[in-house]
Design a protein around this nucleic acid. Structure first.
Length: 907
RNA sequence: GCGCGAUUAGCUCAGUUGGUUAGAGCAUCUCGUUUACACCGAGAGGGUCGUAGGUUCGAGUCCUACAUCGCGCACCA
């Protein structure tokens, strides 16, 4: 058999291993059933991959997503479930168009209008194709066991059918409507943007007070004031009590005298400014609402490019917002209407999170989803908001961590109608047609005059046969993303895929897109399918740099997975993202951390290397255990399997990983592997090594698939004719361990005592600086009542002698007599270890050490005695806790006696 | 303004129904090359769990207030 290299080199194995997995077809649950890996009636487990934006490449944030989801998928696949992980990409309409437009401008100094809609979209498609290829490669590099045969794209033909079907149903039920409402307009990208896509940026600007008839009004935006003819005050404001609602008055204003009207509305904050404000309903959502309530006129002041309209008068029209602001203030100052200016007014400016354009609210005719409209569902009235609330409150969608439920409900409470139409070119075109025979595209009386919504593309008017035009707008990218869990499974067709895998099991994504996406999937799925899109929402945190800063291109602290994989291997990156982080909390990631997990993969490699070197010819699945150490490691392993399984079921990946690492490195490598070197029954220990290692590889596989599969291949290649794949092995079963362990009747308490004795000896040597070369004899004493230990100690004497204790001999005594002239340590209440002290030993130091120990134990005895003599404790604490404490106290007392005896003996 | 989170060893973080002496990794100190691994091994040091109250026999854990930092939402004339 060839020997493994000393160091594991990920780059030599990872691509080959992935290729082997992919070629096997087992990423596809259907193949697993066909080939008998999964039972046909096995419980399904499904995750739809949150589709990354088709704007370029994956970053380390995507790596968290892939690591967590692949862990879940591999775990459930090994549990024998019918497991599907469905990949895809999001066309990310606005973000992608913006990116391609920028590239177009940078390389050719052309705008999309220079190219025209058709050839611009062709450019976008080319760009997207390339991005998707890059991302597919990256996902494979991360080891993702995605079913590539089902790959989807939010803008392909199947998803377009789903989008049109959804749109039509919502339109027919009156949930989608077209209306002239105030929207967020981005003059830079020439499109509307939804509320959630806005970022608020703090800005310090001057705040002006102007005389407006008898009122003083405050504003930071004088340039919108041309059309203002309403002053609004609070109905309870005593300063304005003498005016009545609807009262007209004259005011000298920018371009002469105007007639204005007073309005009273409780929305006004009396303590802000002068308590009086003028309103601009066309360019402010709050003002729009006031105007709607009081049926006031609305006038457009600013055009869609951000310039003033004719209403501003000849001196101002055509100016940009900032130019106009300065000039208007100047003019009002000249007219003596500027009362005062506050210079350090802080307010928030709305920015489009894609592209950075400053949002100008505008009234526009757009398509909306009405989230409050009541409709009939199985005989009861409901609304989208209600459906979204019920999905979590009653239908049991579970959030991990739970606190995000509150955030979710809070968001729904504040939710307004969702504007779904965009004026960009890239995306699903709105499936609405207008007959050219009707002069205006408005709602009229004849069928031709109404918008026609059609699932199929239309070429002529179905009513009059006239020419037809499609709505030029496209849909908000989150509309199609909202359908993702079921559009990917074949909806609107009632496919077997849909029936089998929907609702999906888990939605795993970053908490930052809870509103954008998670909430909208719940909306769409509950409305269109009458079922939840997923049973559990697992939200991971954001990846930050070592200093806790958000990773960003401008800071230059972005970690690209493709840069670090060659250096440390994919497994190390996955581990550093999975261990030490908890759901919903951000992770700090630095190279140091990744390096430490790289070391761990190498450790596992070397454990396997050792086990393979010692591998006996035959490994039986059942074997007799005769050694105490064997019973011990198997029972430890059984415990580990139980706990890790439990942790994974509860989404406690970090805890599971830590337990695995602790077992692998400390229990298995540092203890059992060393023990195995000295156990006499080589065949038995080698069998146990392999037995534990194989199951350990299975437990680790979901965390670090590459190194575990690589080792697995080495193992199976060396023994079996048809190599198996770890990826489709069954998760370790506890029963195997119980069977082996119950074949022998001993418990394993004795063996952990052996380990404690070894540690005590090492500790004694180290504390007294006894040279390692200096071989010494030692004496163990056991109190009379623990004679039962004697056999076990005798049996494992050879281990105590050899496990880095460097003893020449070991004498075991049952007497209570303390050996003279020795260094000593109490191991347990009943066992002490003694080493003859040579001339070089510092007695004072040893005395000090024992006194310190004595004080510690005394303190413990004191607190335990106090606790036990407290009647409240005895009456209230559960019996088993009290019993435990009592046992503890007895142990402490015995240990104290031991330590005191030792103290006397060295005087 | 409302809400959420964080505050535990030098650093990064675990600590899930309240119950021994609060854990890990990294870093630090001492020692070490033996059937895998120096990307290693042995041993050690290091914390009044942000502050102040409260509930309880018992609080890192539950409650209240406060402080500092971070995030979300709303308002923003």
């Amino acid at each position: 058999m060839k020997e493994l290299p000393k160091t594991y080199s990920p780059e030599e194995h990872e691509d080959l291993i992935y290729q082997m997995w992919e070629e096997s077809g087992f990423f596809n649950p259907d193949v697993c059933v066909e080939k008998g890996v999964t039972e046909e009636d096995a419980q399904p487990f499904s995750i739809t991959l949150p589709p990354p934006n088709a704007t370029g490449t994956l970053h380390i944030g995507h790596s968290v997503m892939l690591a967590v989801e692949d862990l879940l998928i591999r775990y459930h696949r090994m549990r024998g479930e019918r497991t599907l992980w469905l990949p895809g990409t999001d066309h990310a309409a606005l973000a992608t168009q913006e990116k391609v437009e920028r590239i177009l401008w940078d390389t050719e100094q052309k705008t999309r209008h220079d190219l025209g809609r058709e050839s611009f979209l062709k450019r976008v498609d080319e760009f997207v194709d390339e991005s998707r290829n890059t991302m597919r490669r990256q996902m494979r590099k991360m080891g993702s066991s995605l079913d590539w045969s089902r790959e989807a794209f939010t803008l392909d033909a199947d998803r377009n059918l789903a989008v049109r079907t959804a749109f039509k149903k919502m339109f027919d039920e009156g949930i989608i409507y077209r209306g002239d409402r105030i929207v967020n307009w981005d003059p830079k990208m020439q499109t509307t943007v939804s509320d959630d896509e806005i970022e608020w940026k703090e800005e310090t600007v001057p705040f002006y007070y102007f005389q407006y008839g008898p009122f003083v009004i405050g504003t930071s935006r004088p340039e919108t004031k041309f059309g203002d003819k309403y002053v609004v005050v609070h109905p309870d404001d005593e300063r304005y009590a003498k005016y009545h609602d609807g009262q007209k008055f004259e005011a000298e204003w920018i371009n002469g005298t105007i007639t204005a009207i007073l309005i009273k509305d409780p929305i006004i904050d009396m303590s802000f400014g002068s308590g009086a404000m003028t309103i601009t309903p066309w360019h402010d959502p709050t003002d729009f609402d006031i105007a709607e309530r009081h049926h006031l006129d609305k006038e457009q002041i600013i055009d869609y490019d951000g310039h003033l309209l004719n209403i501003a008068g000849s001196a101002f029209k055509g100016l940009t917002i900032l130019e106009a602001r300065r000039k208007i203030v100047e003019k009002l100052r000249e007219k003596g209407l500027l009362v005062k200016t506050e210079d350090n007014y802080i307010h928030n400016v709305a920015i489009n999170s894609r592209g950075g354009g400053t949002i100008e609210p505008q009234i526009k005719r757009q398509w909306f989803i009405n989230v409050n409209k009541e409709f009939d569902r199985d005989g009861t009235q409901t609304s989208l908001k209600k459906l979204m609330q019920e999905a979590v409150r009653e239908k049991g969608i579970e959030f991990v961590p739970k606190r995000f439920e509150k955030t979710y409900f809070h968001w729904i409470d504040n939710l307004r109608d969702w504007c779904i139409s965009r004026q960009i070119w890239y995306g699903h075109q709105i499936p609405v047609y207008y007959c050219q025979n009707s002069k205006q595209q408005t709602t009229g009386d004849t069928p031709c005059q109404k918008p026609i919504v059609s699932i199929e593309g239309l070429h002529k008017c179905p009513h009059c046969g006239g020419k037809i035009e499609q709505d030029p707008d496209t849909l908000d990218t989150w509309f199609s993303a909202g359908l993702w869990t079921f559009s990917t499974l074949g909806w609107p067709d009632q496919t077997i895929n849909l029936k089998t895998f929907h609702p999906t099991s888990v939605m795993e994504t970053g908490y930052d897109i809870l509103f954008f996406w998670v909430a909208r999937m719940i909306l769409m799925s509950t409305y269109l399918l009458d079922e939840v899109p997923f049973k559990t929402v697992y939200l991971h945190g954001l990846v930050r740099d070592e200093q806790g800063r958000k990773m960003s291109k401008s800071l230059g602290n972005v970690l690209d997975p493709l840069d670090i994989i060659p250096k440390y291997g994919t497994d190390a990156i996955r581990l550093s993202l999975l261990i030490g982080s908890t759901p919903g909390n951000d992770v700090r990631l630095g190279e140091e951390k990744i390096a430490s997990y790289r070391n761990f993969t190498n450790k596992l490699w070397n454990i396997a290397r050792f086990a393979l070197q010692n591998k006996s010819q035959i490994t039986n699945d059942t074997f007799q255990i005769t050694s105490d150490s064997g019973r011990w490691i198997l029972s430890q392993m059984a415990l580990l399997i139980d706990e890790v399984t439990h942790d994974l079921d509860k989404y406690q990946f970090s805890q599971a990983g830590e337990k695995l690492r602790d077992f692998t490195w400390n229990t298995f490598a540092d203890w059992y592997l060393e023990i195995s070197k000295f156990e006499e029954n080589k065949k038995e220990t080698n069998n146990i090594l392999m037995f534990v290692l194989e199951d350990l590889l299975k437990l680790w596989h979901p965390f670090m698939p590459f190194v575990t599969e690589t080792i697995w291949q080495e193992i199976t290649n060396s023994t079996e004719k048809t190599p198996r794949m770890l990826m489709i092995e069954k998760w370790p079963a506890l029963k195997k361990y119980q069977d082996v362990l119950s074949a022998s009747d001993k418990d394993t308490a004795d063996f952990s005592t052996i380990l404690q004795i070894v540690q005590a000896i090492r500790n004694l040597r180290s504390a007294n600086r006894i040279e390692p070369k200096n071989k010494l004899p030692a004496i163990l004493t056991i109190s009379k009542e623990s004679k039962s230990l004697l056999g076990s100690l005798e049996k494992n004497k050879h281990l105590i002698l050899k496990l880095r204790t460097n003893l020449s001999e070991l004498e075991i005594q049952t007497t209570e007599k303390i050996p003279e002239n020795c260094l000593s340590q109490a191991v347990t209440a009943n066992i002490s270890v003694f080493i003859p002290r040579g001339s070089t030993i510092d007695i004072e130091q040893e005395h000090e050490r024992l006194v310190k120990e004595e004080t510690n134990i005394k303190k413990l005895i004191q607190s335990t005695t106090d606790l036990l003599s407290n009647p409240g404790y005895r009456n209230n604490a559960p019996a088993h806790i009290v019993q435990k404490t009592e046992k503890l106290l007895i142990g402490y007392q015995k240990k104290l006696t031991e330590v005191q005896k030792h103290l006397h003996s060295i005087v």
